[in-house]
Simulated scan of single mutants.
Amino acid sequence: MTTELFAYHPISDRPALHWPEGKRVAFYVGLNIEHFLDDRPSTSIWPSQLVPDALNYGWRDYGARVGIWRTIDILDRHGVRASALLNSMVTDANPQIVAAGVERNWAWLAHGATNSTLHTGLELEAERTRLTEIVDTIESATGTRPRGWMGPGLTETANTPRLLAELGLSYLLDWTNDDQPYRLTVPGMLSVPYSVELNDLILFQRGLTGPDFLQMVQDQYQVLRDDAANGGRVMALALHPFVIGQPFRAKYLDLALEYLVAQPDIWITTSDDIAEHFQRTAG
């Protein structure tokens, strides 16, 4: 990819962005619901080329078996709808998770086929075929056609945004370079903020603790709220059930959401609604 996908518009030079009801910060939970293969390297707690890799596969699989359900309970307790970043292979491997999300009216985003394979190295027609399969599979399983995309490992090809637009999608999360949505050079496509910083997988693998996580969530909100005196901001909280779903971490997600939903200047929403509002109201 080159920066031909978007122009440089510093946040200091933009018209003020306004969220519904005068809220300052639009907040969403990006809930990664992922599929992993047991015979390929992927996200790991300890580097390994073993096949089968019981240590790393088991660590990841905890999310689908246990962690997601603990996370769902916490989201439900605070009335937070997830923006579900869904690998399409989950629809066959873990249909109970998809059913739980449909029941809760989650926003569904396409997140590739499996997180064991990055979305790279595809020729144009092969990528068109793969993206069509991914999007159609998710629509069939959820009853909702995805409007957003985040690639496995935040990966794209140079053709991905245009091909997604052809399929009716309208925004990407892969470019984590802003606190506001912005328009891409592909007609009708936006970049919506996502976070590789306020992201459980990154933070806890750096050795941070649950109390550290809670403090960072609070700090992130407070600074964005103050910045939003000059225009609304987006706060994304990126979660992976095999990480945040561990008992000793989940309690701090509970406390973080308890704090956020009590704030008067926050719009608790989804990435779909952020994109739709920006498309409709921003110049």
Rank of each mutant, 00 (worst) to 15 (best):
D227P: 00
F27H: 06
P193W: 00
Q246W: 12
E276V: 10
A110T: 02
V261W: 02
Y259N: 15
I11R: 00
D219I: 10
E103I: 10
T132W: 05
R249K: 13
T160C: 14
A158T: 13
H240I: 00
L31G: 10
D212F: 07
D265K: 02
V80R: 03
D219L: 06
V25W: 00
L109A: 15
V192S: 06
H18L: 02
L257Q: 02
G101T: 07
P241A: 11
L253F: 11
L190E: 00
Q222K: 09
V29R: 02
Y171K: 04
G121Q: 13
L31S: 13
R225V: 00
S271Q: 09
T117L: 08
S195W: 12
G207T: 05
L208Y: 03
L169Y: 01
F248M: 15
F6P: 04
R183F: 06
S44C: 07
G79Y: 10
A110S: 10
N115W: 10
I72F: 12
V261A: 05
D273R: 02
I268Y: 09
R77Y: 03
T281G: 09
A99S: 15
T185R: 15
S42V: 00
R145F: 07
A141T: 07
A110K: 05
A282L: 03
L260F: 14
A64D: 08
E276I: 07
T157Q: 13
V192L: 01
T43R: 15
D212E: 15
A250T: 05
D226L: 12
I33H: 11
V80I: 09
Q222I: 07
A141C: 12
S191M: 06
H240K: 08
L75S: 04
E4P: 01
M216H: 05
Q246P: 01
G148Q: 05
A107Q: 06
E258K: 04
R128S: 04
E276T: 11
Y221R: 04
V217S: 08
S83N: 05
R130S: 03
S83E: 06
V234D: 06
M189G: 02
L55V: 14
T176W: 06
D136H: 01
L255P: 10
T137P: 10
D13A: 01
S195E: 15
Q263Y: 07
